[in-house]
């Protein structure tokens, strides 16, 4: 099963060049049943990444382009009166899918953003009083432009907290970019991608991830990290318990991908920046969320053993 997952990662790497670590983290996020927020400038391959993941994992795929006039109904779906039957018939929105790409999520109004809230956390949506389950698995990959760009609405902290990871792809290396320019069009490559893993296997893998062992000593390390965020002088607030759960879940998934059935501190350290970066806010930062410098200091200052 792990070889299948490795094959998936490999296939995605053929499309997204030179971003092995980010791709692996994205896979980790999905295995940990978390949602992924990719924050980067336009044109960095965010959409391609999500699309490629959906393809290789064989998931049904929907994309919502968030705009300032997007309404919640556009996400969740609406009931339309059917004249022939004389009844309201529910037309599911794009959220009823296995992998949802919420493109440029920070361009929509907070009202529309929060429509995703219940879906992401509960795996179900409530529309007009009726609760409808979402398919299993259900991933949301949201992309957003850095908040300094014009015409954006900051995601509220409550919403940010619901993303397991926040990734940033960054510019590719010169070699990767050269390869990109010389190679075939990405769009074409995407259509050539074949599903490489059965849905049942993916669900089983997710189950195994949650069975990965986290020993007493490892939990202590996570607690030390969490405690450090809560007492850190430069941070306005520390990690929530949901944050620590997310950290453990992500570390377990990373350990699983590394072929271990137990977590070691190194796993936690790998996922720490992407898991806690968007959940922390620096004391004297007016708008910005998170700080890689503070997270780095967590990695070096908190005793690992």
């Amino acid at each position: 099963m792990r070889t299948q997952l490795e094959a998936c990662i490999h296939a995605v790497n053929q499309v997204i060049l030179g971003k092995e670590h980010a791709v692996r983290l994205a896979m980790t996020c999905l295995l940990a049943r978390g949602h992924l927020l990719i924050e980067d400038l336009p044109g960095m391959g965010k959409t391609t990444l999500s699309h490629a993941l959906a393809q290789v994992l064989g998931l049904s795929y929907q994309r919502i382009q968030f705009t300032s006039d997007l309404l919640p109904g556009d996400i969740l779906g609406t009931s339309v009166f059917d004249r022939e039957t004389g009844q309201f018939i529910f037309h599911p929105g794009p959220v009823f899918t296995e992998l949802l790409l919420a493109d440029e999520i920070n361009r929509a109004t907070p009202k529309s953003q929060s429509a995703l809230l219940e879906a992401m956390e509960e795996g179900q949506v409530t529309i007009e009083g009726a609760t409808r389950p979402l398919p299993e698995p259900f991933f949301v990959i949201a992309t957003q432009n850095p908040v300094s760009q014009g015409g954006t609405f900051n995601l509220p902290e409550s919403q940010l907290d619901r993303f397991l990871m926040r990734l940033s792809l960054g510019y590719p290396s010169a070699a990767a970019e050269r390869q990109l320019l010389q190679g075939a069009a990405r769009r074409q490559l995407l259509t050539q991608l074949q599903p490489l893993i059965e849905r049942a296997d993916l669900l089983a893998a997710q189950q195994q991830v949650s069975d990965v062992r986290a020993s007493e000593a490892l939990i202590s390390y996570i607690l030390r990290l969490v405690e450090a965020t809560r007492t850190h002088a430069q941070l306005a607030f520390g990690l929530s318990p949901r944050g620590s759960l997310a950290l453990l879940a992500a570390a377990k998934a990373w350990a699983f991908l590394a072929g271990r059935d137990y977590v070691i501190p190194e796993d936690v350290q790998v996922v720490l920046p992407v898991v806690v970066g968007h959940r922390l806010r620096e004391q004297n930062s007016a708008s910005g969320v998170g700080s890689s410098a503070v997270v780095q200091s967590l990695l070096t200052d908190v005793p690992a053993l």
Binding site: I264, P265, E266, L299, P303, A304, L305
Partner: peptide, 9 residues
């Protein structure tokens, strides 16, 4: 070994 360094690292 640095404080924050895991044994593998």
């Amino acid at each position: 070994r640095e404080t924050g360094e895991g044994l593998r690292d």
